[in-house]
Structures are given as C-alpha cells and as structure tokens.
Amino acid sequence: GGGGGEVEVPDFPRFGVGDLYGSEVARNLAREAFEESEYDYGFDGDVMVNPEGDQVEIDIYHSAASETNQLLAEFIAQELENNLGISVTPEAIDGTRFSNEYYSGDPEGGTDTVNGEEVEWSNPGPRNPGPRSVTSNEAWDMSVNFGLNTYPLNPLTNQTFFDGANANFNPVGYYPQFDVESLFEQARQATSRDEIRQAFVDIFANLAREQPYIMLTLGDDIIGYNPDLTGPIENFSNGWDLPAWHIDDPSVSGSYDTVTGASFNTLNPLYNNESGAGTAIERAIDPGYTFDENQEYFPLLYDMSTEDGEVWTFELRDNLQFSEPYGQVTAEDF
C-alpha cells in the first residue's frame, strides 16, 4: 500500500460474493472436482455422498479457548451443509495439542510430480513433512485453529505458507499450480514499491483462483472493537502492531491489563510454542524496534541498516542496561 503508480490487476474469482456464492456455484465446483478424482463421489439429491453412497461426514476443529473461533467453525459447518450437503461436526481442541498432534507430522521428505515435474522435499519439517503421501500424526479434515496473515508488514513472509515443497508451513499438502517461486523472487529483487506491489498482485490473484485455504477476507481498515481503543493510526490494523494500541492515555507507571487468545506456560521465547504467549512476551521483553504514527521504522534497542538488502548491520544504542546486577547490554549478548 501507500501510493505509487498503477499496477495491473488481473481478473480473478471472488468466491463467496455475488454470483460466486450459493449452492449452485458450490455444487458445480464440486462436480468439476469429482471429474478429476479417482474416487466416485457425487450428489444424491441435496446430499453429497461418498463412493459407498453415504453422506459425506467431516470434522472441523476449533480452539476450545475461543468462543469466536467456535462460532466461526459453526458458521462454516452450516454453510457447507446448506450449500453442499456435507455433514460437518465442530470439535473443540486445545490449540497446543492441535499444533503438536494434528498440524504436525514426522519429517519424511520424498518426491512427487507437480505440474508435470518431479519436485523433491529436500528440507522437510514438522509443518511440511513431505508430499501428500506423508500425513500428520493425527487425521483431521478442517480446522480454524490457525489463521494466515496474508498482509503482514513484510509481505515476503507469505512465502512460508504458499511455496509448496519449500514452504515452512504446508500441513494441507498444497502444490501451487503457478510459478510462485519466481514471483517471490521477483518481489525480492524489486527496486520500487510498484514492482513489489505488482508481484504480489500476481501472487494473490493466483491464490484466489486456486484457494489452497478457505480465504476469509478481513479489511485492513476495520475500526477497533472498543471505541476507546487508540493507536498510531485512525483505524485498527490487522494485528502486527498490536503493542502500539491501548485504551485511553498510556501511562508510564501503574498496572496494565491485556488479554491473550489462549493460555500459555512460559514467557521464555526460546521454549515457547504456544500462540497465546506472544502478547505477554511482547510486554515482558523489549523489542529491537517499533513503528511510529506514520508506520515508519523506529529503532529502540538498535538501529538497522543495509546496502544491498542481504547483509544487515545492527548498531546498539549507547548505554543500554540490563536490570541489576547484569550491567550494560553489549553486542555479544545477542
């Protein structure tokens, strides 16, 4: 965002809106998928049936700690039943358990044919353990436990979700049907804001067509839920700058109340693997930098600079002190 010249926006489907919403559209898309499948799925009246002729039944997992997450799962279940005749059962689960047992698998690696070419999972991990033949530790159909932030401060981080065999997070076995790697490389090599915008227009237009996940869009101009919520810009953003938002006037002393989306057991960032701890850790540990009211980089612990975008220099502020009795902060501490 933020000004610049015109970028070319290709036509792409906006599923769930206007003519691309409803049972007729959903069933036609399902029939197209049936034709490409080796399994004999179909419809018996309003009901989607499996090869045995029984109604298709699936589960959708949601966070046991979030009523909002539960309502979202129930809404999706209702939509799938009304529009596709699928029986969907919402299941509550602890977020950490889902992450460790359902969202993860044993890294096996392997190869598969993608777009007519053999692709190797050369660096498999728990969240992308291998091709589709490598499954998670526990079986699951759908989940709304985790969301994907598709417009973070640095959009290049989206590569961690959408780059197939190279992605750090690919628990659903998504194989991009377009050359996503070259588009991310184009974005990395961009020398202007317009060039990087164009690269990501192309990336997200393709993702909109392929729908590797159920894309629930959320505008970045949403006003904070609490009218007393204030921050660096008029409208509440999508969460990356959460520590900059507060209720009423911030104070340099006294108590501070905040909330997290889930419980957690540690404030040590080296050992934490629970999403709920993020907010608390941000309060307990000073970050290296933040962003000012104009969304511009603002150094706190250190200043950052680079000449080529690949090698970065971090220069500590003078006289930074740990709490007693640990003394002055030095570069060696990092």
Rank of each mutant, 00 (worst) to 15 (best):
V9K: 10
R14P: 05
R14T: 11
G16K: 01
G16A: 04
D19K: 12
D19A: 13
L20E: 06
Y21I: 05
A33C: 12
A33F: 08
S37L: 06
Y39P: 12
Y41S: 06
D46R: 08
M48K: 04
N50S: 11
P51V: 03
G53W: 02
A73C: 07
E74T: 06
L80T: 03
L80E: 07
N83R: 13
G85N: 03
V88A: 08
V88P: 08
P90W: 01
P90Y: 03
E91V: 15
I93A: 11
F98T: 00
E108W: 04
G110I: 03
D112S: 15
E118R: 04
S122T: 05
S122K: 08
S122G: 11
G125H: 06
P131S: 03
S136D: 07
S136I: 03
A139P: 11
M142I: 00
F146M: 07
P152G: 05
L156N: 10
L156Q: 10
Q159M: 10
F161K: 10
F161S: 09
F162P: 05
Q186Y: 01
R188S: 13
Q189N: 15
S192A: 07
R193H: 13
R193A: 15
E210K: 04
I214Y: 13
T217W: 13
L218G: 14
D220E: 13
D220C: 10
D220W: 11
I223K: 15
Y225R: 13
D228M: 09
L229V: 08
G231Y: 00
E234N: 12
F236M: 12
N238V: 13
N238I: 14
G239Y: 01
W240G: 07
P250R: 01
S251C: 09
S251P: 07
S255E: 11
V259D: 11
V259I: 09
G261H: 08
G261M: 13
A262E: 09
S263Y: 10
S263F: 08
L267P: 02
L267H: 01
N268V: 03
P269W: 00
P269E: 00
P269D: 03
N272P: 09
E274H: 07
S275Q: 14
G276K: 01
T279H: 09
I281W: 01
A284H: 09
P287W: 02
G288P: 04
Y289P: 10
Y289D: 06
T290Y: 07
E293T: 14
N294W: 06
P299W: 01
D303S: 11
T306F: 05
E310N: 15
W312P: 08
T313A: 08
R317H: 10
D318A: 12
S323D: 05
A331K: 01
E332R: 07
